[in-house]
Design a protein around this nucleic acid. Structure first.
Lengths: 228, 228
DNA sequence: GCAAAAGTGTTAGGGTTACACCCATGT
DNA sequence: ACATGGGTGTAACCCTAACACTTTTGC
């Protein structure tokens, strides 16, 4: 292989993000709008070009800053989407990522043109963005089953019902309440905070848990499976 | 996002491959040599630059053709490795893949400069190729556990001992012979060919199985786990 | 008959699943 | 007292893991 041929250096990089958040009841994902013609205003994943001297992760982080005003984020690469659909200017390779947003940061409104929607209501997107989104959905399912990634979406203190809702929505199926509860407790990854949530309706207040990260890190060393 | 700025189009693409094969007893992986100074002759993953009008998959396939003379291959993208370690000519993004080679194609010798080695004996490689290799090793482990990908490496007809060796080597641990046998049989994914292997030593001949791909495809529709 | 590899069963323990009712709270 | 969501146990089944000896073959 030789790189001593400047004709190779004709490609541009972009990155699209599939961003997930949990508002306390629902798993949500972020969509933006195409800023220019053609198809100006059409829904798309939050996306940016990557500057030649910029790391892809920095470019992805900039998208989060622009759309949500965040500097605190979890990012993971999905895949490079490199189909040769030509723009007149040349080839663009999209190194897509997905990102999980802490519940605490979900209150502020997204910037103009961005909105949170339910993943099930994802519309048709420009380019191959639906393919990227589907890829992210699969990745999220696997991650949530095998790693305690749900805790990056939940509030620091959460009720059993919140984690239950989140798992049902990411996995896209009903999970038996009692069995899920047993499994969670058996894992010993939850700390019982011995306090109840603030009331909001007329019903029994739930009590709160937090994630035992230290214990997880210990377990993690021997065998990387969480198994939900 | 705007691509209407030609300054973005300065990146080159390469692809490195982590190629696995099974010679009947051992899981092997392919290494090449750096063809130019600096570090000419240093071990590296089989790699090529991607031409601006070439798909990444085609470029990866070309590496397999050059190194092994193959046109029949399984390829899967690993990740894009896009660190900003600058060459004087500009930025190179490596969209790495891994590939599984059918046992039937393992007899011919690799081209000059390439050789099959045991994954455990992987030497220090140039650039970030060890990182790519480690990434591939993790991916292979997961795939072999959850999908019947071992069958892409095994001969069409294989003995229980061959599949046992292959799984032990990909997972990097001993698997109890009797339990593994039961699990395989329970899965009903093997067809008993009711014949014995040709003898090569002075011992009991094993009998041969093949992979029941039709049955797998049926199972695959509902739930994508093989679970080994 | 011996060396080399193939083949084969049982048991205990733990995980998974299916399933329905009572409890605590605010109004 | 009622409406709302919170919280809890048991039994059957299946899977896993641990474990060692006998069989078949060529020489």
């Amino acid at each position: 292989m030789s790189t001593h041929d400047s004709s190779y250096f004709q490609v541009a990089l972009s990155t699209s993000l599939v961003v997930y958040g949990f508002d306390g009841e629902n798993l949500l994902t972020l969509i933006g709008q195409k800023p220019q013609e053609p198809y100006k205003g059409a829904p798309m994943l939050p996306t940016t070009m990557v500057k030649p001297d910029q790391s892809v992760e920095d470019a992805a982080a900039a998208v989060l800053t622009e759309s949500l005003g965040l500097s605190d984020y979890y990012l993971e690469q999905l895949n490079a989407f490199s189909k040769l659909y030509r723009k007149p200017e040349g080839r663009v390779v999209n190194i897509a990522h997905y990102s999980l947003i802490k519940h605490e940061l979900m209150e502020r409104k997204p910037a103009a043109g961005y909105q949170w929607i339910r993943p099930k209501e994802m519309p048709d997107l420009v380019y191959d963005h639906n393919q990227i989104f589907d890829f992210a959905q699969e990745r999220l399912k696997r991650r949530v089953k095998h790693r305690p990634i749900g805790f990056r979406l939940l509030p620091k203190e959460f009720s059993f019902n919140q984690i239950h809702l989140l798992y049902e929505q990411t996995l896209g199926k009903k999970l038996d309440k009692r069995n899920f509860h047993k499994k969670l407790m058996r894992s010993k990854l939850l700390i019982d905070e011995h306090k109840a949530e603030k009331m909001d309706g007329s019903n029994k207040p739930s009590h709160l848990y937090s994630f035992n990260e230290k214990r997880y890190n210990k377990l993690n060393l021997r065998g990387y499976d969480f198994k939900f």
